[in-house]
Design a protein around this nucleic acid. Structure first.
Lengths: 347, 347
DNA sequence: CTGTTAGCGCATTCAA
DNA sequence: TTGAATGCGCTAACAG
């Protein structure tokens, strides 16, 4: 910011021939001010196109209406939907959102929290899976704790061990288990999983839940049934091709995220495999677009926008300080069977 | 921000037994400082988990590394992709992005620019179509101009009349025209358009371009061939149903955005119309997901992430002040024919 | 090289 | 009710 200096409250006060204090009072509506003075200040402000300097306000002690949100990738519809929920609540509370996208780089996640801390954001929201990595957890805690000690509120979406903060928890494990049971009911007995990086808690939870569900029918999921790739459309595409190359005999494939399922669907189609006639396919998340695929995708529905809304609400209503007991809201996941899964056919 | 006061540079200086200035120099690396002092400051800072107060820094004159981005809807993949590009460049420059989503409300767009102005964001990016409305244009200009006068940089993606700012311009008109010509070449002569609100410049440009393209073959597009709805998936779904209800005899339908085309595709499928056998369908934008639809969508490809990257670059390299001549970068749009469009069949 | 000091723009005491 | 004065935390002169 250079160029001609900004219009300041001082300028407004001068033009209105009142003191700085009076001008401040008018702008903030804190105290009653004589009608005519008020009018003079207001019209001076309008005339000069005055806008308060949020930095000065923040520094002078007025609380700052900014929240920080850190997600893995804005371009992924999952995060876009959750962020949308966050923004709705932020908007209702006239707050500005500083959104950081880490490009799935754990280091960046910590760096951004640090920047947000510098910005004195009144709350920081971590949206997206934690990383299962002791060093990362420690580094994150080293940022989060002093932040909370300084009065910052923190809320996270998804499970973060060792971070005693308010949490909104999509029920990944139970959802995946219910999905497994539903797929078993369709007659399937041979499964494969297209998984994102096992370093993500979310991925682990979904695999574990799915495995547990299969176990209820005595079906086992071995390491060779799991194809790991990145949690993206291209990851799903690659993982599905790996599965094909391995000549895996699954009659039903579970992709741990809808984005991966979308990539897998195309890979299967390109390989001449019909979904669901040759192989059934299910995802997880229920992104808006999966209903428009053909076949439409069976999946586990998560209330994506609510995830964001509730995290934001927790952050807004949170009592500051690390002393406050951390709250946790669990949101149910629901199995939705659509066209991409079919009853297993006899040969 | 309340709770226990924050750790300040003063605290660090005290703990390191140096002056405030020295501590500042060490933290910012501006000047050489004696080795041992440097170490003492650094270890004190680490020990106290010190983070500079960005507000104080900004107020004291250090330029603020924050940019504001205003888009219509983070949940729409178009904006998500453009924003992704913005974030990439912002990240490379260690800048924080304050992202506002207006929920397609013109009023909010102006309110957010005002807030961003208060935040003294070093640049403001307007992503997404302008509104064709004199009052809106005036109100927006009333925010933008004082902002630029104060040294703020502004860049926009898409055409904004009467806002003399740096612009990144996807070639909507030429793209739509080229699409029309390609569709004519497939033998189509009866067309319909599913359009977003005509209050958006982008929508108008695309319709006009399409009409011009048809005109080259003497094909006219009348008002009755245009079905208007919101620029969303649901809007496309509704518009397609309107078209069906009107028993429109188009052999080819152009949806002005891919999101609308996605909704239309489902509507047509639900109505038992095969795409492209019964009717061809084309969109605009080339969202990543449209390749994974079935049939894959013919569309006009825009370099979405580049749109965001270039806007951000313009803002970063921009000379401040309204005096600076505004620059404009035009990005080409390219027709991509996929499975959703077919040669017109004889009956 | 290091320390002292003067603001940055505002909210908020404290006096009047 | 209004005005004058203080300080928020920091950077950037300036002086030593």
């Amino acid at each position: 910011m250079n160029g001609r200096p900004h219009v300041t409250l001082e300028d407004v006060a001068q033009m209105a021939s009142v003191s700085l204090a009076t001008a401040s009072r008018v702008i903030n509506g804190t105290t009653r001010v004589r009608e005519d003075l008020r009018d003079r200040v207001l019209s001076a402000a309008a005339h000069l196109a005055y806008t308060p300097n949020a930095h000065a306000q923040a520094l002078a002690g007025a609380s700052h209406r900014t929240v920080g949100v850190v997600c893995h990738d804005v371009n992924d519809p999952y995060f876009a939907a959750v962020t949308h929920g966050v923004m709705r609540v932020a908007d209702e509370n006239r707050m500005l959102v500083m959104l950081a996208s880490t490009f799935r780089d754990p280091e960046k996640e910590i760096a951004y929290v640090s920047m947000l801390r510098a910005e004195r954001a009144s709350a920081i929201l971590l949206v997206g899976s934690a990383f299962e990595d002791r060093a990362w957890e420690r580094a994150m805690a080293a940022e989060i704790e002093p932040y909370r000690r300084g009065g910052g509120k923190v809320a996270v979406v998804s499970r973060h061990r060792n971070l005693r903060v308010d949490t909104v928890l999509p029920d990944n494990r139970a959802g995946a288990q219910a999905l497994a049971e539903a797929l078993l009911r369709l007659g399937h007995r041979r499964f494969a999983v297209l998984a994102g990086p096992r370093s993500l808690t979310t991925v682990l939870d979904r695999i574990d839940g799915f495995r547990d569900g299969l176990a209820t029918a005595g079906v086992e999921l071995s390491e060779r049934d799991i194809f790991e790739a990145s949690s993206t459309r291209d990851g799903g595409y690659a993982a599905a091709n790996d599965l094909l190359a391995a000549r895996h005999r699954a009659t039903c494939v579970f992709a741990v995220t809808d984005m991966m399922a979308i990539g897998a669907l195309t890979a299967l189609r390109e390989a001449g495999r019909s979904v669901p006639d040759d192989v059934s396919l299910a995802g997880f998340d229920d992104l808006p677009v999966v209903r428009d695929l053909s076949p439409s995708l069976s999946t586990v529905a998560l209330p994506l926008e609510q995830l964001g809304e509730q995290a934001m609400e927790l952050a807004l209503t949170g009592r500051a300080g690390p002393g406050a007991r951390s709250r946790s809201r669990r949101l149910a996941a629901e199995v939705v069977l659509r066209g991409s899964t079919a009853r297993r056919r006899r040969r």
